[in-house]
Structures are given as C-alpha cells and as structure tokens.
C-alpha cells in the first residue's frame, strides 16, 4: 500500500504530536492536560507511523516492547507514593518542590507530576500494545 500523502503527513505530524504530548503532560496540573491525554497523543503519533510505514517501524522507533512501557510506567507511578510513605503520610499524598532556577523562576516539581509521567508511559504502552495487536495480522504471539 503506497499512501504517499499519509507518509508525507506522518513525517511532519508525528514529531509535532510527540512534542505536543509532552506539553500536555507538563501543563496538566493547572490547565487541561495530563498524563493520560499526553500519552494518548504520543501513542497516536507512533500509531501514525505504524499506519504509514508498517508496525515494524513503529516498534523500532519505540525501541522497547510496548508492554515494557506499561511495566515501567506503572513502576514510576507506583514509586511516586514512596515519599509520602517514608514520611508517614497516607500513600500518594502529594509533595511539591520548587527549586528557583536562574532566568526561569520557580520550577514546580512534585510527586503528582512524577505520577503523571508514569501514567504517560503506561498509556503509551497500553495503546500501542492494542494498536500493534490490531495491525499485525499474523503474529501469533499476540493473544
């Protein structure tokens, strides 16, 4: 299948989608956005690659198996509860840390962001597991 338009569009769209997904991920704490929606966008960027050039290429771009992303993402999200546990507070209580950066001002970092990054990777992993399973007809490994 030679979908020239799709391929050219993918070339430009897919990096844009990835960058926008990062923006959404980071601004999620005060404005609409967050790990889930960011992850979906990033996954759709890669799904476009899979559509235009085949899922083998998308897998190569991803480098690791999408299921590893699920695991890693869950691990990140899970570990964001640890600071609260260590200080004897209920699990997942949010902590914020605002280092002053030169020129940029205060940079709010915190465990909710940490959690969201975990969700981001989990969603990418899950969505792509499904997308690859749908795209790869004959790979009997899936299901």
């Amino acid at each position: 299948m030679s979908a020239v338009i799709l391929r050219i569009a993918t070339k430009y769209l897919s990096p844009v989608l990835l960058i926008v997904s990062l923006v959404l991920l980071l601004r999620g704490h005060n404005d609409p956005g967050g790990g889930f929606i960011g992850g979906l966008l990033a996954a759709s960027g890669l799904a476009l690659q899979a559509l235009a050039y085949g899922s083998a290429r998308a897998r190569r771009l991803l480098r690791y198996d999408p299921r590893t992303f699920i695991g890693g993402g869950l691990l990140l999200a899970l570990s964001s509860g640890i600071p609260a546990l260590l200080s004897g507070e209920p699990w997942l209580k949010g902590y914020w840390w605002k280092p002053e950066l030169p020129l940029l001002g205060a940079l709010p970092l915190g465990t909710p962001l940490w959690f969201d990054i975990g969700i981001y990777f989990t969603v990418i992993g899950f969505t792509l597991t499904i997308v690859f399973a749908l795209a790869e007809h004959d790979e009997r490994e899936e299901y």
Partner: peptide, 11 residues
C-alpha cells in the same frame, strides 16, 4: 501491583 510490575519487566 509491585509483583505485576516486576513480572512484567522480567517478561
């Protein structure tokens, strides 16, 4: 959850 993550990463 921890066991699930560990087994997932050591697939």
């Amino acid at each position: 959850l921890v066991s699930a993550v560990a087994t997932l990463l050591l697939r």
